[in-house]
Design a protein around this nucleic acid. Structure first.
Length: 346
DNA sequence: AATAGATTCAACCGCTAGACA
DNA sequence: TTGTCTAGCGGTTGAATCTAT
C-alpha cells in the first residue's frame, strides 16, 4: 500500500481552470474556509488534485489579490527585496500583500530581469537575476541545496549587507533608484493594455453566469458537485450573474473587469485590514470577498501578520520598503548599522 | 493576411519542512 | 528516532497571445 498520490494521474484533470471550477472552489472555501486541501477535491467533486486547488486559490482566487501591471513602487520594492532575499518569492510576496509569489516570480523573470540586464549593460553569461548581488550570494540558489544555501546566506549576510549598502548608499541609492525608475519607465516596462487573460476571464465570467443559470435550473450531475456546495454555489451564481452584467455594462470588458466581477460578486466593501489598507493605494484591481474577510484576513497572507508583529530592524526595514517617504529617513547608515542579525531575518 | 518568433503567465512538477503518530 | 502525510516553495513548462516581418 503505497502512499496515496496527491495527483493521481488517473481521473485528475489538468490544465487551465474553467470558470465553473473556480466557482465551485470559491463556493467551497467560502463555506469551509481554506485549508485541508486534501479534502477539497473529495468534498467538491472537482476533478483536481489538492495541490492544484490550493494553487488556484492562492494564486488566483484568493481575496486581496491585485492583478494587472505593477506600479513603479512595487517594482522598486521587488528589486530591493530580491537583492536582499534572493529568489525567495514567498518572502518577497509577504511584503507585497496584493501580489502572489507566483506573480512576482513571473514578473521578475519576464520584466525585471531584463531591466536589470539593461541597467548593467553586457552581463556575464550567467543569470541576470543574481548579477546585482554580491558574489557570495550569486550561485547560492543554483548549486547549493536549500538548507545549505540558507546557511551560506547567513554566513554571507555581511557580504550581502555590504552589497545592499552599496546599492542603496547615499550616492548610489538615488542613482540606483533613478536608473531603476528610468529603466522601468522606458516604455516597454509599461504594460500596453490589460492582460488578455483578464479580459478573457471577465468575458467568461459572463458566460459563467449564463451557464450557471442553466446549471441552477437543471441541477448539477450528482456526484459532480457535492450537495454541501450547492447552496452557496447557487448564491454565488446569482451574484456572479449580477456581476457579469455589471462588467458588461461598464464600458466593455477591461483589465479590471475580473476584480469588479468578484468584488460585486461578494458585495464586499469594508475589508478593514492592513491588506486592504495597503491595497487602497491603487486598488482598482483588488479582489475582495466578504464572508472570507475574517477567514481570509488571517489565512491569505499569514506571513504578513507575523511581519507586522515584528519589532526591530525587520519592522523598520519593512517600513522603509513600504513607505517611499520614509525611505530617506532610513538611510544607509541605518541599513549598515541596523542589527541585521540572522535571527531577525531568518 | 499569413506566418514565425517572442512574450506572458497560469499551472505543473519535484522537492523540502514541519506536524504528527 | 523514524516514517508518513500535508502544505508550501521555487523552478520550469507550454498554451495563448502579441509583435514583427
Amino acid at each position: 500500500m503505497g502512499r496515496p498520490l496527491c495527483c493521481d494521474k488517473v481521473g485528475v484533470k489538468k490544465g487551465p481552470w474553467t470558470p465553473e471550477e473556480d466557482i465551485v472552489l470559491v463556493s467551497y472555501i467560502q463555506e469551509h474556509g481554506p485549508g485541508n486541501w486534501r479534502s477539497v477535491p473529495t468534498n467538491t467533486g472537482l476533478l483536481r488534485c489538492s495541490k492544484s486547488c490550493r494553487l488556484r486559490w492562492t494564486n488566483y482566487l484568493r481575496p486581496g489579490i491585485k492583478r494587472g501591471s505593477f506600479t513603479d513602487q512595487e517594482e522598486k520594492m521587488i528589486f530591493h527585496l530580491q537583492a536582499l532575499l534572493g529568489n525567495r518569492w514567498a518572502a518577497i510576496a509577504s511584503y507585497l500583500p496584493q501580489r502572489t509569489d507566483n506573480d512576482i516570480k513571473n514578473y521578475w523573470n519576464t520584466h525585471l530581469k531584463k531591466k536589470l540586464k539593461k541597467l548593467q549593460g553586457p552581463a556575464s553569461p550567467d543569470d541576470g537575476d543574481h548579477n546585482h548581488r554580491q558574489q557570495g550570494l550569486t550561485t547560492a540558489s543554483h548549486s547549493i541545496p536549500k538548507g545549505q544555501w540558507e546557511r551560506k546566506l547567513q554566513t554571507d549576510i555581511h557580504t550581502a549587507k555590504q552589497a545592499l549598502y552599496e546599492a542603496l548608499s547615499l550616492d548610489n541609492r538615488q542613482s540606483f533608484l533613478n536608473e531603476t525608475v528610468i529603466a522601468l519607465g522606458d516604455g516597454d516596462g509599461v504594460r500596453k493594455g490589460p492582460p488578455h487573460q483578464e479580459s478573457s476571464y471577465a468575458s467568461s465570467t459572463k458566460n459563467i453566469a449564463r451557464l450557471l443559470e442553466g446549471w441552477m435550473k437543471s441541477s448539477p450531475k450528482s456526484g459532480q458537485i457535492k450537495a454541501g456546495t450547492a447552496a452557496s454555489f447557487a448564491n454565488v451564481s446569482n451574484k456572479m450573474a449580477a456581476a457579469a452584467g455589471q462588467s458588461t455594462r461598464e464600458g466593455g470588458v477591461t483589465g479590471t473587469a475580473t476584480p469588479e466581477c468578484f468584488d460585486s460578486l461578494f458585495s464586499f466593501n469594508s475589508w478593514n485590514s492592513d491588506v486592504s489598507q495597503s491595497a487602497s493605494a491603487d486598488d482598482n484591481n483588488v479582489i475582495l470577498t466578504p464572508e472570507t474577510s475574517t477567514i481570509f484576513q488571517e489565512e491569505s497572507k499569514p506571513s504578513l501578520e507575523s511581519n507586522h508583529n515584528h519589532q526591530g530592524p525587520i519592522k523598520l526595514l519593512e517600513k522603509w520598503l513600504l513607505d517611499d517617504a520614509s525611505a530617506q529617513a532610513l538611510q544607509d547608515d541605518y541599513l549598515m548599522n541596523m542589527a541585521l542579525d540572522e535571527d531577525a531575518l531568518f
